[in-house]
């Protein structure tokens, strides 16, 4: 095989076949995909189904705690999981820039395979395109996913009610800070590692224990905790009150963010979700989350009240701040 991606890898000819056979099928060896048919035909999914799609354009491609491949699997798995769906199948489309080292593509595909195994999903359809140098940044990946929502499960904004508790499964800002540090080669003492992880396992346990008392869930990605909470408050037509002291943030993330003038509440996450749970079940939910490796430092961070779409943060000093959505990318401040 060549050592780098050529335009000819995307022309549907010999090199395309070679790439699919020797690289993708090696990492994703399932029967449906092996057929190399125009569409994956399958049976076995019945009832309420959930479908989602997401595109991944992260730079750098490899960062502490993950890479674009792991992200592409976890991102789609997590979107299904927070919707209450058990993810089953994924599709993956690769857009490649000519000149991308095949070794990098191999690493990315093997990382996707590992993430699929961890999440218990299979990639059953795929596509590869190659564009000329400079037309995209090395590799973009789109994944779509399909999952099954248990029939009795009822999640949605409309279920939020005053008094519901907001629970998060761990510290915020790890992914955003890790990416920024890797992108800019920032030399911080202590390691900043992305939290990129499939959340369907931990969410499955939560829904198994208290299926009725979980009102809705949201994974925290771009825009961070504050943007996600604000979106929910607006969509649900209620107010959300967060306690700053209750929100877990790793000291190294807090320190790096402070140095750069960034707010962890607005930093990206790839392995965190918040769950809205009725007050009497909040402690039970917390206990379930804390027994899972991805929820060791889960915490109750706030609650819902009647209102009109406002998000408030109570500071350790007793002040209350109004939080809005992130405006533009987080930029380091000059002073």
């Amino acid at each position: 095989m060549n050592d780098m991606v050529l335009l000819a890898h995307g022309d549907g000819g010999v090199l395309t076949h070679e790439l699919v056979r020797d690289l993708f099928l090696r990492h994703f060896p399932n029967r449906t995909l092996k057929g190399l048919t125009d569409a994956a035909v399958f049976t076995g999914l019945a009832g309420r189904l959930a479908v989602t799609t997401d595109s991944f354009v992260v730079s750098p491609l490899f960062f502490p705690g993950g890479d674009i491949g792991k992200l592409a699997v976890c991102g789609t798995v997590n979107d299904l999981a927070v919707s209450g769906a058990g993810p089953v199948y994924l599709t993956a489309a690769f857009m490649l820039e000519e000149g991308l080292p095949i070794a990098d593509l191999d690493l990315i595909a093997s990382s996707m395979a590992r993430a699929c195994e961890e999440a218990g999903v299979e990639i059953i359809a795929g596509d590869t395109k190659v564009v000329g140098r400079g037309h995209l940044d090395r590799i973009f990946i789109n994944t779509a996913g399909i999952g099954i929502v248990p029939g009795a499960l009822d999640l949605g904004y409309e279920r939020l009610a005053p008094g519901d508790r907001v629970i998060i499964n761990g510290p915020i800002g790890d992914h955003g800070m890790a990416i920024l540090a890797a992108r800019e080669s920032l030399d911080f003492a202590g390691r900043l590692v992305s939290d990129c992880a499939p959340l369907n396992g931990i969410i499955n346990e939560l829904l198994r224990e208290i299926p009725r008392e979980v009102k809705m869930m949201r994974d925290l990605t771009r825009g961070g905790l504050a943007t996600a909470a604000k979106e929910i408050a607006v969509a649900a037509g209620c107010d959300i009150h967060l306690e700053e002291t209750a929100v877990p943030v790793r000291p190294e993330v807090r320190g790096a963010a402070e140095l750069l003038g960034l707010d962890p509440l607005y930093l990206a996450n790839e392995g965190k979700f918040m769950a809205f749970v009725s007050a009497p079940s909040a402690e039970d939910a917390l206990a379930v989350l804390q027994t899972h490796p991805l929820g060791r430092s889960a915490a109750i961070i706030g609650e819902v009240s009647g209102g009109s779409g406002n998000l408030y943060l109570r500071t350790p000093f007793g002040g209350t701040k109004y939080l809005d959505m992130l405006v533009g990318e987080p930029l380091p401040r000059i002073c």
Partner: peptide
């Protein structure tokens, strides 16, 4: 006078207190 004070005041929610 300073913008960093402004941000610090806002972060801690002091204005409202």
């Amino acid at each position: 006078v300073c913008g960093t004070h402004t941000v610090a005041i806002s972060r801690a929610g002091l204005r409202g207190l």
